[in-house]
Amino acid sequence: MPLKSLTYAWLSLILLSGASAAIAVMVCQNAVPTMTGAATLLVAWMKMRVILSRYLGLWRAPSWRAGFNGVLGGYCLLLLGLYVIPVLAS
């Protein structure tokens, strides 16, 4: 993989970290927990996708990349479910 692709991957991770920071600000301002929780986990999942694909080189193995992305996406949904249970119960 050319070094330029790694640089783009790093820049996208920095941008996603900026998105995490923006969500953290919303958390501090008591925004809707379900929305901020979903956005937080979505950003985390997107970061993991970039690390797996570009840093760990799974772009060379598309079927494995799809498998990892799917399992981690499902896991993030599980975490979101656990996170919103108290909100739904109240």
Binding site: V27, G37, T40, A44, I51
Partner: peptide
């Protein structure tokens, strides 16, 4: 790195 990008939002942000 991968573990941290999941650990950080769950422990620090999901209030």
């Amino acid at each position: 790195d991968l573990v941290w990008v999941l650990l950080f939002p769950v422990v620090y942000l999901l209030a």
